[in-house]
Simulated scan of single mutants.
Amino acid sequence: MLKLGSRTVLLPVDLQLAFDRAPWPPRNNPASDENGLALLAAWRRKGWPIIHVRHDSVEPGSTLTPGTPGHTFRPGFVPREGEPLVTKSVNSAFIGTDLDLRLKRIGADAVVVFGISTDMCVSTSVRTGANMGWRMILAADACFCFDQKDLDGTVIPADAIHRAHVATLGAEFATAVTTAAILKAVDQPQAA
């Protein structure tokens, strides 16, 4: 059974508007925002720690450049007062940031990750966190990814990419579960 508690940190990754418009290709999982908002609501209700992650691109012309419309948080995902924000310019939320130090200062016992995209920044953050010794939990249905072309130009559907990444992350780097399973664990009585 999944065990969570007051030192389990919620890590929403890159929940920004850019991903809803060109040049981003078609995506999967239209329920991801709803599931992510349910996780945020549960953590806020419990008063458990949340650390938001935002991508601040340094690439010329990026839709995630600070000051552009796409850089803005998606509706409902804006950090509230007292909820820290980690900004990054690479795929992993741990690289070039103070996330590891923040987790240590909280005394975190686990990190629940969700966001955009399953195969890029979510996957890289989960893998890095696991390699650094953190107990990582992936909220698989609160993530989405995009169609991608393989080497011969064939489009691999977003859902296939998502499923493969959830499977590999769950096999080696994280406990991969549904939002419903996480919400059930949040509401379980905690041992003293």
Rank of each mutant, 00 (worst) to 15 (best):
I95K: 13
P75W: 06
K104E: 12
F73D: 07
P84R: 12
S62V: 05
T87G: 12
T118G: 08
H71V: 08
V113S: 13
R80F: 01
G67R: 00
T72D: 12
M120P: 00
P69H: 03
S62A: 13
D98R: 13
R105D: 11
C121Q: 05
S92T: 13
N91V: 11
G70T: 01
L103N: 02
I95H: 15
E59M: 09
A93E: 02
T97I: 07
S89N: 14
A108D: 09
D100M: 11
T68D: 03
E83G: 03
V90I: 14
G115D: 02
A93P: 01
V78G: 08
S89E: 12
G107P: 04
G82C: 10
G96I: 11
D98E: 15
V86C: 13
K104V: 09
V86G: 13
D100S: 14
A108L: 08
M120C: 10
E59Q: 11
I106N: 03
V78H: 09
V112M: 09
T72K: 11
R74C: 13
P79W: 10
E81N: 11
G70D: 05
T72S: 12
E83N: 04
G107L: 06
P79S: 06
T97R: 05
T65K: 05
D100V: 06
F73H: 15
E81S: 15
L64V: 03
H71C: 07
L103Q: 03
I116S: 08
K104I: 07
I95G: 10
R105K: 13
E83I: 02
S62F: 05
D119L: 06
T118A: 14
D98C: 09
A110V: 03
D56H: 12
P60A: 12
L103Y: 04
G82I: 08
E81F: 03
I106A: 01
V90T: 15
R105T: 05
G96Y: 14
H71R: 10
R74I: 10
P75V: 07
N91E: 14
T72W: 06
D98Q: 11
E83S: 00
G67M: 01
L85H: 05
D56T: 08
K104Y: 08
G82F: 09
T65W: 03
L64R: 04
V58T: 13
T87Q: 14
I106D: 00
P66T: 01
P60M: 05
R102D: 12
S57T: 00
G115F: 01
S89W: 13
H71A: 08
M120G: 03
D109H: 11
C121G: 01
P79L: 07
G76S: 13
V58A: 10
G70V: 01
R74D: 09
P60N: 07
G67L: 00
I116K: 07
L85G: 02
D98Y: 06
D56C: 11
M120H: 11
D109Q: 13
G61V: 00
V86E: 12
E59C: 04
L99W: 03
D56A: 14
F94Y: 09
E59L: 14
R102P: 11
A108W: 04
T68M: 01
L101D: 12
